[in-house]
Design a protein around this nucleic acid. Structure first.
Lengths: 134, 134
DNA sequence: TCTGCCACCTGTAGTCACTACAGAATCAAG
DNA sequence: CTTGATTCTGTAGTGACTACAGGTGGCAGA
């Protein structure tokens, strides 16, 4: 209710003060009111918005994707179909990345297993890295 | 056999010319010989080394991990146990990342499924992003 | 040999998403 | 009114490159 300082906002949301100012600069959060002396004064709306951004970033949405959702009018006004499209696209990327990692995991695991582990210059890991096949 | 220009090296390895020079600057690849005029002249050894670096990076080894392997004397001399340790550590990180992505995938997938997709302001994706639970 | 042109050189600056600092001003409590 | 914490602006740093500007090198054809 009462005005929130940037420090409180930071504590409430877990977003660094510097990052909050950065988000303001790049237009991810609205410019807050100021005190006479120029200190930022935030409202509850900013807490929600910043929490939203933080969570979306944690979930791997790129800043541009977050921006896209926000530009749809923000969590308050965005239309489901448009937001859904962004989420679906993001889901596809996540699945692609998972597949990549799974291949990598198999390769690494089997390589490490083949590895003698002895203090010798023959090494399956090195062999793998030297070999161009994926 | 014959000297290789930086352009050829780039074509052979698929690494950008600028990146090759960057790798030289940060010490990932040895400084090559030069022509009288100052152009870099590479040998086969550089092709192997650069290919090695490229592949390790593609496999998600961080530059520091690559540096660590190279500092063990490079692919030619490194000892299996030390390299293995780096690879095992990397494997752990890959698995952690996979688990993260899997959680994210489930959340996104179930959310998108719940999503009406209509042109309405109620949206499961927004709800998810607004909700702080992971 | 001269000319043309591409490849290459160095050095600097830009990217992204922040993070970190310096030095000054403001705020809140006592 | 003083003190100490907080906040302010603006700039610079991070990592891992990428991109450019402005100047040479190398080599083929005339």
């Amino acid at each position: 209710m009462a005005g929130i300082s940037i420090g409180e906002l930071s504590r409430l949301t877990g977003v660094h003060i510097e990052t909050i100012r950065y988000f303001e600069k790049v237009g991810l959060v609205d410019k807050p009111d100021r005190t006479e002396g120029g200190h930022r004064v935030y409202a509850d709306q900013h807490v929600r918005r910043l929490g939203f951004i933080k969570r979306a970033r944690e979930l791997g949405f790129s800043p541009d994707e977050v921006r896209a959702i926000l530009s749809l009018g923000g969590p308050e006004n965005a239309c489901c179909d448009e937001v859904r499209e962004i989420a679906v696209h993001h889901l596809e990327q996540v699945r692609r990345k998972m597949a990549d990692l799974a291949r990598l995991e198999r390769l690494l695991a089997s390589t490490v297993e083949r590895c003698s582990g002895g203090h010798v210059p023959e090494c399956a890991v090195i062999d793998m890295l030297e070999t161009a096949a994926s």
